[in-house]
Design a binder for these strands. Structure first.
Lengths: 245, 245
DNA sequence: GCTTGCTCCTCACGCGGCGTGAGGTTGTAC
DNA sequence: GTACAACCTCACGCCGCGTGAGGAGCAAGC
């Protein structure tokens, strides 16, 4: 029984840790070898090795070195409570990871479905997605996704291409000073309303979220050419649609 | 259009970032404000803000600041490839998180089922579990778990209490020098075999894993009092069981 | 004895993404 | 003029080590 004390290298080899890690544990007081040679080499006894195994067990469960030190420090801890707390944290992290995967997967699917996308388009899409996640509830997002699926890729692209044209034509009329109650503004406003309805599906919650978003994020509308003046003009045209001719 | 340039504080407020974070992005060259006041205050232009939004989008997807800088640096990257790589990483992390949750949950269940457990028992159980995860395949672990469920807590405890007694009695006989072919060693060996069979369920894979574990981890057996000499004695007793009387 | 080659030792900096001061200047309001 | 907020630039701290640098201990072969 003379060879029970190990030097760092040996212990590192047996546990799969690095020598540096063992040095670190020594530094922070987590595992101090109970003996040293005359020349200062660390000697780990059987008790040290047992402690190290406990440390590694707790480490596998995701505890920080500080938590491990605290736990091993006083032996009167409630194991169940410790584990349950850790489990709760792990569950939260799991949920976050899952969300992240879903986000990435959604983006990847979009990218695969679309033509090779320019970097700019990609970043713009990303921004739109984060915006959506900010203003729409998860259920609303699911409904929107379902509607997109139902419409099909091509139809979506058509709509996305139509919007800028519609906005441009509306602006023309506004700048010409056309009365919003008359044609062709009535027709444009009707189409405008149709496109919005195609998006919301008539869901009042989604309508509400859409409105909130466009109010809170004016720069988004701005980039699409929907500045406040134009929107006011469109608003008047809509009102005229509802009013009897 | 005179108020489009923002100072750090304003930008921080609008994005939810900290001023320090923006300083950091400046330091590492990720987002350098394109203008400064005469006195050196940072002024973020609309373009800077747009870039920041891109940065935040990519950050939400779990990219590191360095990766983001690289991605935004050259505009010719393949969005799909970038996202797919990130997705792969995220999936791996998700799998790890899930495993961790399962481990923690298994331990929590054990702790809830058992009486209030001492810290030492807890750590010992942990060690046993990590050992098991090392030597048994996931399917084998599931089978073991199922068999435990079927046996019930109390039966398991009885067996766990019986083992040390059985080992002690076997050691007595060995030290008395009893012929392993005779009673009462035959009875003890028979019981020994029964207990092992109750554990393995006769599954040859599990039998194999059990053997591998006890060979690779002699200190585990040692702590239970099953030293090499005793095991050799048991082995002889087993052989006598199989041989005709 | 001396060298070779391995293991051991003690500093000490580095990573990522900032938090958190310290200590000083600028800008704005009363 | 004076308060107070917002800005500035260092610079250290976190966590769990990796990765050297520069030197001493230790067994084996010449």
């Amino acid at each position: 029984m003379q060879h029970t004390e190990l030097k760092v290298g040996e212990l590192a080899r047996r546990t799969g840790l690095s020598v540096r890690a063992l040095h670190h544990y020594d530094e922070i007081g987590l595992l101090k070898p109970s003996a040293h040679t005359a020349s200062g080499h660390r000697l780990y006894t059987a008790a040290d090795i047992a402690r190290l195994h406990h440390i590694l067990s707790l480490k596998q469960l995701g505890f920080s070195l500080e938590e491990i030190a605290g736990t091993l420090g006083r032996a009167d801890f409630s194991a169940l409570r410790v584990v349950e707390l850790r489990l709760q944290r792990a569950r939260e992290q799991l949920a976050e990871q899952r969300q992240l995967c879903e986000r990435l997967d959604a983006i990847a699917r979009q990218l695969r479905a679309a033509e090779p996308v320019s970097a700019d388009d990609f970043l713009q899409t990303l921004e739109a997605m984060t915006m959506f996640e900010k203003y729409y509830t998860p259920e609303q997002l699911k409904e929107l996704e379902a509607r997109r699926q139902a419409m099909g890729e091509d139809a979506i692209k058509e709509v996305e291409a139509e919007w800028p044209r519609l906005i441009a034509r509306m602006r023309e009329e506004m700048e010409k000073g056309t009365d919003p109650a008359t044609e062709p503004v009535r027709a444009l406003a009707t189409r405008w309303r149709e496109l919005i309805r195609a998006f919301t599906g008539g869901n009042p919650g989604i309508q509400q979220s859409l409105q909130t978003m466009s109010q809170q994020e004016p720069q988004l509308a701005q980039r699409q050419g929907r500045d406040p003046k134009l929107m006011e003009y469109v608003g008047r045209a809509m009102a005229c649609l509802d009013a009897p001719k």
